[in-house]
């Protein structure tokens, strides 16, 4: 073997060894300097480690998008928007940047905590809350506003300047505790693996573990529950501009369950094709849906074009008109 062949073998082997060592260090030691972004939003530090699902939405981007203009009948505008602004001084159109939501059990409001980042007039929020009978106290160094009411009532915590936690007293306190103890969702390697796979430029995403979410209480048909029981994780990411496009992924229990799920989706798409053939707009939506994925991974990519948003907006407009005072039903 010549000298240059030896050098080549040595060089190639070194690249492989360095690459594998880097991967091992990254896997067991966490972040490496070559990372250009942190994994997920910084608010995840407040999300309890046991959360089943976590979601993120860039509200500012949605509010400024053409999508929002198309769906102006669906978003709160006019009186309702003004009421929120006059009561707590928050203009939802301009003052909220992002929202991170987490669920620690069933996905309902009792188990949810929302971390809202934006520009808030906290003294005004406190004053309005006290006017409505709320109590303000310090909890682990954070201002905690507990609403008056029977049972588990709502709570708001001022976590940082420009960052509020909304939920009930239990979930909001859990968020404060998670940040203080460091036992937050960023330590949950299963969730963070999927969060890390999401593109930082998504407008919204959600990652969740379906097991333990109590599907039996959801009111879904038995057939749907049977199919969903094979799903361990779900990941949805959306990009909003003129329309909406995204990818919904499901990680099934095993390869066979994933294949069955893919077959169900393909069957549903075939049925939708048959029905959508008469409506060009619906047909365009169905054509934009693609099923992919290998092994336990089932991925469905989709696009909702602007024409469909116009349709939704029209339906919402009609409903608002019917519900307006003075309109005969």
């Amino acid at each position: 073997m010549t000298q240059r062949t030896r050098y080549f073998l040595l060089g190639s082997s070194m690249v492989i060894i360095v690459g594998l060592a880097t991967g091992l260090v990254a896997m067991y030691g966490g972040n490496l300097p070559m990372r250009s972004t942190t994994v997920g939003p910084v608010e995840l530090a407040y999300m309890p480690g046991g959360a089943n699902a976590v979601g993120y939405a860039n509200v500012h981007e949605v509010m400024n998008s053409e999508f929002r203009q198309k769906l102006r009948q669906v978003f709160p505008t006019g009186e309702e928007k003004n009421r929120i602004q006059s009561e707590i001084g928050v203009d939802i159109e301009h003052d909220i940047d992002t929202v991170v939501v987490g669920f620690t059990g069933n996905p309902d409001e009792k188990n949810a905590v929302a971390l809202v980042r934006g520009r808030f007039n906290t003294p005004q929020i406190e004053a309005v809350a006290i006017q409505h009978g709320a109590t303000v106290a310090d909890y682990n160094g954070k201002r905690l506003i507990s609403m008056a009411g029977p049972g588990e009532s709502g709570a708001v915590a001022i976590l940082e300047p420009g960052l509020l936690a909304l939920g009930n007293a239990t979930t909001v306190k859990a968020a404060i505790d998670a940040a203080k103890s460091g036992q937050n969702i960023t330590k949950n390697t299963d969730v963070m693996k999927f969060v890390s796979e999401l593109d930082g430029r998504n407008t919204a995403w959600v990652v969740g573990r379906l097991e333990g979410m109590g599907l039996a209480n959801t009111g879904l048909p038995q057939q749907a529950r049977d199919q969903l029981s094979a799903v361990q994780w779900f990941i949805v990411n959306l990009h909003v501009d003129g329309g909406v496009n995204g990818v919904a992924r499901a990680i099934a229990r095993d390869d066979q369950a994933a294949e069955n799920l893919r077959d169900v989706v393909r069957g549903g798409l075939a049925a939708a094709h048959l029905m959508g053939g008469r409506d060009t707009r619906l047909d365009a939506v169905v054509n934009a849906i693609q099923v992919a994925g290998t092994g336990k991974d089932v991925a469905v990519s989709f696009t909702i074009p602007t024409e469909i948003l116009d349709l939704i907006n029209g339906v919402a407009g009609m409903r608002n008109l019917q519900q307006a005072p003075g309109v005969k039903k």
Binding site: V15, I16, V18, G19, L20, T22, G23, L24, A26, M27, Y28, G29, G30, N31, L32, M34, R35, S36, T37, V39, M192, K193, S196, E197, L198, D199, G200, R201
Partner: peptide
Amino acid sequence: VIIVWLLVVPTTSSLGATFP
């Protein structure tokens, strides 16, 4: 492959999560 992985993956995600 390793060079491609080191260049592409860290743009949005962690190397550790994709190492397996």
